[in-house]
């Protein structure tokens, strides 16, 4: 190809990205944000309720004073109580949310009621953890496995903070078994490196069909945004009734722990 044609193609593709310094003009909103993932582990289940962030790197406003419960198959009721140490977090007594049962979330807050239902699907076994050495440190090698949608949450703790307050890092790998052009051309991700001796706790979550729809739309607005081919901006899917966003999910979880040496 002749040089001028390369130049023409370059001109067509030319775009620059730089910092945007104009302030965000935001107004408070009372849109309820629900973050709820019940699992099959016999632990106190947690549900977070909040209102939207007002600043880019700020903290969400906790939604306090809610009445929260989960109903299993219209028969068994699990009540959630607000954590006094962490406003906006609601905790139950230990119970399992198991495969084959339907769970319904009910929230009453500020005179309004919100509902959502979900059921879990099975999860495939974890495959061996892979990591590679980069500049005398380590980096996770994330890869797709199996045939069912899932995501793996990696909590990484160094020897210095074994109590995980705070953890060294947290990396989530989504494997939604979908072909999305905005995922294929998603923007580059920053590497996360950790030292030898770090402990990695992996938790693999199963993803139901509706949860997968939510995750795809959420990723399209977050991790997959800013590449070459973006989809139109749109509301993130939800299974919550009108006036709330987020998702109420029930997942099957398996986990393992690895010490990196």
């Amino acid at each position: 190809m002749k040089p001028w044609r390369y130049f023409l193609i370059l001109l067509l593709l030319l775009a620059c990205e730089e910092r945007f310094n104009d302030p965000l003009n935001t107004r408070p909103t009372n849109l309820l944000v629900v973050e709820a993932v019940l699992t099959n582990e016999l632990v106190p289940q947690k549900i977070n309720l909040s209102f939207p962030y007002q600043q880019l790197n700020g903290a969400p406003t906790p939604a306090t004073g809610a009445v929260v419960q989960v109903v299993e198959n219209d028969a068994v009721i699990y009540s959630f109580y607000e954590n006094i140490l962490q406003p906006g977090e609601y905790i139950s007594a230990p119970f399992r949310a198991v495969f084959g049962e339907e769970y319904k979330l009910e929230i009453q807050i500020q005179g309004k009621e919100y509902y959502a239902t979900d059921s879990s699907v099975p999860v495939e076994p974890l495959t061996p953890l892979q990591y590679k050495m980069v500049n005398n440190q380590f980096e996770l090698v994330l890869y797709e496995t199996g045939t069912i949608s899932n995501y793996i949450d990696h909590t990484i703790t160094s020897e210095d903070n074994s109590g995980c307050m705070p953890c060294l890092g947290r990396v989530i790998f989504y494997d939604l078994k979908s072909i999305d052009v905005n995922e294929i051309y998603k923007p580059g991700k920053k590497s996360f490196l950790f030292p030898a001796g770090s402990t990695i706790i992996r938790r693999k979550y199963s993803v139901s069909a509706s949860y997968r729809t939510y995750l795809r739309s959420m990723l399209s607005e977050t991790e997959w945004r800013g590449g070459i081919f973006d989809v139109d901006r749109a509301n993130v899917a939800t299974n919550l009734s009108t006036g709330a966003t987020g998702f109420f999910a029930v997942s099957t979880v398996i986990s393992d722990t690895t010490v990196v040496e």
Binding site: G169, R170, V171, P187, G188, K189, E223, G226
Partner: peptide, 8 residues
């Protein structure tokens, strides 16, 4: 500019 991997 890059998307962060670490959520913490």
């Amino acid at each position: 500019f890059k998307v962060p991997s670490d959520l913490i």
